[in-house]
Design a protein around this nucleic acid. Sequence first.
RNA 1: GGUACCAUAGCUCAGUAGGUAGAGCAACGGACUGAAAAUCCGUGUGUCCCUGGUUCGAUUCCGGGUGGUACCA
Length: 303
Amino acid sequence: MMHEKTLVILCGPTAVGKTKSAIALAQHFKSVIISADSRQFYKELVIGTAAPTPDELAQAKHYLTGHLSIHDYYNVSMYESDALQIINNEFKHRNLVIAAGGSGLYLDVLCHGIDNLPDVNFSLRKELAGKLQENGLTWLQEEVKKYDPAYYAETDINNHKRLLRALEIIHITGKRYSDLRVRELQPRPFKIIKTGLFREREILFNRIEKRTDQMLAQGLEKECRALYPCRHLNALNTVGYKEMFHYFDGTYNLDQAIEKIKVNTRRYAKRQLTWFKRDAAITWFHPDDTEKIITHIRKTDSE
RNA sequence: GGUACCAUAGCUCAGUAGGUAGAGCAACGGACUGAAAAUCCGUGUGUCCCUGGUUCGAUUCCGGGUGGUACCA
């Protein structure tokens, strides 16, 4: 199917160099960048998320970065509609848009949509979380087993977040989560070209180490201190912040907190790689090979 | 220089009354549908410092090296 409109995906693990490459592509194609980094959405999280700098923001139009407050509720479905609306608008006067980021789920939903499941009911979530607290994981497992044995059989039964979400949906809809989660791929009215950035692991890990030290030098501690009162917010359950909060608590000393940030960032990068690796549609490039990425996009786009 | 103690996984250490070894952390692999930088699952990766001796068999016992730590000079 021929589309005259194209969405270019640029994904990859944290610290691989996505921001820089995305800007280079945006400048070359005279295009814009839609962020797909679930923590760069929050305007309060700047240093710790390695958000694009004012200088970088000036080099290309960026969407969906710093557009939320940590106090806002947001989820992947809201991201899907926000991003699609922007893409739709941009396609009125250009043929190519770039979506760049490291949040695999968000990119997948942008490309293929997500099942029409009910939104979170906060009072229900609170109620169920309270029961979980009171009765333990076994209770939650038994509930899911009782109302949706199919889901219980196939899911990670130690993952309380998954079980809680499934139980929520069962309560809200009166239906089984496994019947509603059909994973239907939604067609998009534009072409999608998926590119990924890759570096040798040792080099990637060195970059993480160096970038963490830079964050500290740029004032990560101060940024975290200001956010410390809000530490319970989901947006702050984030690498780089939660470890500093433990330092403020006295659980870690500063050196331990820094080491933990490095370890957890490496693990995050590994989880991202696991996610992206299984997507055979991604073509991989070294971040320095901007010309190759451009050639690939031009070639694929004209096919 | 002398005496004592130590040397086992990437790190900190346990252990084997002689039958080639296991914890924590780190590391590695994986899952993933409205919390996703979240959450969860799985995996020991080893010249037991070197070298002789005793023994059917030594990481373990004995001797000698080497390295480290502490104390005494």
